[in-house]
Amino acid sequence: MNKNNPYLPIPMRLVKNFCETEDKLIHTFDLEFVNKEDQENFKYLPGQFAELMVYGQGEAPFGIASSPNEPGILKFSVAKVGVVSKALHLLEEGSTVGVRGPLGNWYPVEDLKGKNIVIIGGGFAFTTLRSTIQYLLDPVRRGDYGDITVVYGARNPGLLLYKEELQEWENRDDINMVTTIDRPAEGWEGRTGFVPAVVEEVAPSAENTVCIICGPPVMIKFTQPVLEKLGFTPEQIIMSLEMRMKCGLGMCGRCNIGSKYVCKDGPVFTLEQLKKLPNEY
């Protein structure tokens, strides 16, 4: 974040513009810091987001998909929906973009030490979860955490993000990586079924465990009762919210749920915290 003016983005160079999904709607962008100083100042943790700016178009908030242990770059995966995301998709490698951040809070990785972690993701909302997994799997840190279970689902194989990494995680034995697609598809040998059902099958123990869940509203809605059945209390369930955002600083007034600004007091909340807020998101 620019120390003097939080509205000023720092310049970054687009080094990779990669089409992530079969439907071509999601691209992943690797950005490199232009100034060494900016790189040193950009300290973030999994779960935080940044405002990504395309010069001449505008800015929009995206979760940071890279992890602090991948130094020198920031990674974002962006769905094509409107002005900024469309412009991003069209950008040539080598272009300059602006980044304002890191913004918001993060998954409580400090408090998670000594605990088992369950990560549940759906669709393209896997960005900050990728960041979290990379972070937890870092050899310097892996020992601090217990079992790690990941359930990640998409409609079909072509819509899964980070396919190479998924493969790599599946091959490791210090993480239980479960990938699923909604319905059987040709060439897919992995698991099929909706995320809530798969979570029920995998049945992670709630004992000394925290669950981070991120995905489309329907997935969250149907996974919640499953988690409850498995014994997860609202304090043990952590979610990340999306709202329409502009400033990211708790000033422009549009992202609030009750008295909380999702951009600044969130986007990460425990289900316990959310239950105390009005149901307006």
Binding site: G56, Q57, C252, G253
Partner: peptide
């Protein structure tokens, strides 16, 4: 009341970022 919107007004790659009451 203090809500605002942020928008870019630009031609190609030159422009300005504007905030307007919302």
């Amino acid at each position: 009341c203090h809500c605002f919107d942020i928008a870019d007004e630009a031609k190609d790659c030159a422009g300005c970022r504007v905030r307007n009451w919302d």
